[in-house]
């Protein structure tokens, strides 16, 4: 279980560029939750994910993973709990290393790394089996450099790497946004497969409203660093895309009023 308690994050504090990215949010992510996160640009979605992953350390508030306070842990110390897939398909893998070497790095997530051989003979069989689950034929290309793969293939490998050691939570930051529609559909299919296969807890940022409602069991809407909607099944099942759009319009409308007041 992951819990955010009154978490706040300010960028460039005390300067003209001061930006309150997260205003003080509390969120309880239950085990096996699959939460989709929506919100306009600058709403704080990615910042929230980065706070959970440890890429950012909160200014105020605490983050608990399985009742352990990890607020001050840098990301590499939290990595044993967290699997991550980024928006940029190049971010999750090292292009100059081979597929098997990338997988070997992922296999040691949260474990001590020593001077043993990185890729052992026994690992290869395991890697082949895992890669065949992707259905991309990568199981025959263990010694190919990852840089030779397409964006979609790299994202699929990243997904595999994020889940190979079961994480407490899988963080997906618009992980299909940079892919063509067909590849994006394939990655979503794989995401659902891995989530069901390993019974994962997921937090997924998306810009696709339909995806936000069709995937998972719970949806969060963020706006200006706050969570303005948190709805779970079965109530969520009643919601339609146009309802979400209406809600967006409403919060944006308030923005316009604010702007008018400012400009008047």
């Amino acid at each position: 279980m992951i819990e955010l308690l009154n978490v706040k994050k300010v960028f460039n504090p005390g300067t003209v560029n001061e930006n309150v990215a997260i205003k003080g949010i509390s969120l309880k992510i239950n085990q096996y939750d699959f939460i989709t996160v929506i919100g306009s640009n600058g709403a704080g979605k990615s910042t929230m994910l980065n706070l959970i992953s440890g890429s950012y350390i909160p200014d105020v508030g605490s983050i608990f993973i399985n009742d352990k306070d990890v607020s001050k842990y840098p990301n590499y110390q939290r990595a044993s709990y967290i699997g991550q897939v980024f928006q940029d398909p190049l971010s999750g893998t090292a292009g100059s290393l081979t597929i098997e070497e990338n997988l070997a790095i992922a296999l040691k997530r949260g474990k001590k790394r020593g001077l043993g051989l990185g890729v052992k003979g026994a690992d290869r069989e395991f890697f082949r089996e895992k890669l065949s689950q992707l259905g991309l034929g990568l199981e025959n290309r263990l010694k190919d450099r990852v840089g030779l793969l397409s964006g979609g293939q790299r994202q699929a490998v990243t997904l595999l790497m994020a889940t190979m050691v079961k994480p407490e939570i899988l963080l997906l930051d618009e992980h299909t946004a940079a892919l063509d529609p067909k590849t994006a559909a394939k990655i979503i299919e794989l995401t659902e497969y891995f989530v069901n296969e390993y019974r994962l807890t997921v937090l997924m940022v998306t810009h696709n409203m339909r995806q936000a409602l069709s995937l998972g069991n719970r949806t969060i809407m963020m706006h200006e660093g706050e969570i303005i909607l948190d709805i779970s099944s079965p109530e969520r099942d009643q919601l339609e895309v146009k309802d979400l759009l209406e809600m967006f319009a409403r919060v944006r409308g308030e923005d316009i009023v604010d702007d008018k007041l400012l400009l008047a």
Partner: peptide
Amino acid sequence: KMVRAQGV
């Protein structure tokens, strides 16, 4: 970025 996410 990738190695940090993998706990290095």
